[in-house]
């Protein structure tokens, strides 16, 4: 057993010792008392008033739902105007994009420095990613090449954390024929039963944008997606955990499909030379959709 494993075992042991599950009898009795009272209250619940909102009350709920729907329709008709894209339309439009660029910032807690990861994905399961000093090429859910650029980095737990989170999304998205917002959301550290994406009128910054919120059933974290109203393309996705400040911010942009050489590790490695700057290498074959230079070699050109 090496030193790291010894430390790991010792830390596990500390946690187990600290969180002892053996309860003193006195505590056992006190907690059982609460459970007994709860059981009795629950047994009495059948006698509650029909207006107790804690009980299933189909007519009251139906009326409330009808009222809420009517108010929502009135609000949309009055203040928004035009058609509001549904979540299904946004998800469908995302799936039909030929080429996707996602810049992802991950913070493991409120005071952590963000880690930036860049991903370029083409249809048909092709992927290229930059994480730290490494360019990763993938195809159909597999990593086919890892190329180190620049100086060798020391261990970076923050980067490993971010990469760990993205591992599933990269695998699942590059396996699928089309991009999927659901896959992207499933890779976030959010858990439990998720609500259906609901439009959040308050978060909308302008009329040409639609904002959806997704919330889990039993925890306070949330996901927000901003999409363009006309094109129905999502442009930003934010995951936020209010208890820790952990967050994942994804900026999405789109473009025409690049040449296949963009995803080819051999073509990429041909660009590696001792004289090339790390910026040249990191963005080799990447083209700005607006025609602006991205790296020193683009300026010369």
């Amino acid at each position: 057993m090496n030193r790291n494993e010894q430390t790991d075992n010792a830390v596990d042991k500390m946690i187990r010792n600290a969180m002892d599950t053996d309860m003193p009898d006195e505590v056992d009795q006190r907690l059982r008392g609460h459970l007994r009272i709860f059981r009795e209250r629950l047994a009495m619940r059948g006698r509650f008033s029909p207006f107790d909102m804690g009980r299933p009350w189909p007519l009251a709920r139906l009326a409330a739902a009808f009222l809420a729907a009517a108010l929502l329709l009135f609000f949309i008709g009055t203040f928004v105007g035009g058609s509001t894209p549904s979540w299904a339309e946004v998800a469908e439009q995302f799936g039909s994009a030929p080429f996707l660029n996602a810049t992802i910032y991950v913070k493991s807690h409120a005071l952590a420095e963000p880690v930036q990861i860049e991903i370029w994905m083409g249809q048909g399961g092709k992927l290229r990613m930059r994480a730290g000093h490494e360019i990763i090429f993938g195809e159909n859910g597999r990593i086919i090449e890892r190329v180190a650029i620049g100086d060798k980095e020391g261990p970076r737990p923050d980067l490993e954390y971010a990469q760990g989170m993205l591992q599933d999304v990269i695998r699942d998205m590059s396996k699928a024929e089309t991009f999927s917002l659901e896959t992207l959301i499933a890779a976030l550290p959010i858990d439990g039963q998720l609500s259906a994406p609901l439009e959040n009128q308050l978060a909308r910054v302008s009329n040409d944008m639609v904002v959806f919120d997704i919330t889990p059933e039993a925890s306070p974290d949330w996901v927000r997606i901003w999409a363009l109203r006309e094109s129905r393309l999502p442009v930003r996705l934010l995951y936020w955990h209010p208890e820790t400040g952990e967050n994942v911010d994804v900026v999405l942009s789109y473009g025409g499909e690049p040449p296949s050489s963009f995803f080819d590790p051999e073509t990429f490695q041909a660009h590696l030379s001792e004289n090339a700057s790390p910026v040249d290498i990191a963005y080799a074959l990447v083209k700005d959709i607006g025609g602006r230079p991205l790296a020193p070699q683009d300026i010369q050109r």
Binding site: M1, Q6, T7, D8, N9, A10, V11, D12, K13, M14, I15, N17, S108, P157, E160, Y161
Partner: peptide, 19 residues
């Protein structure tokens, strides 16, 4: 666990796995 190890490793004795 990884985060806990980072935070708690300094409390582990240098000469072995004992806490």
């Amino acid at each position: 666990r990884q985060r806990l190890r980072e935070l708690l490793a300094p409390l582990v004795a240098d000469d072995g796995p004992e806490v």
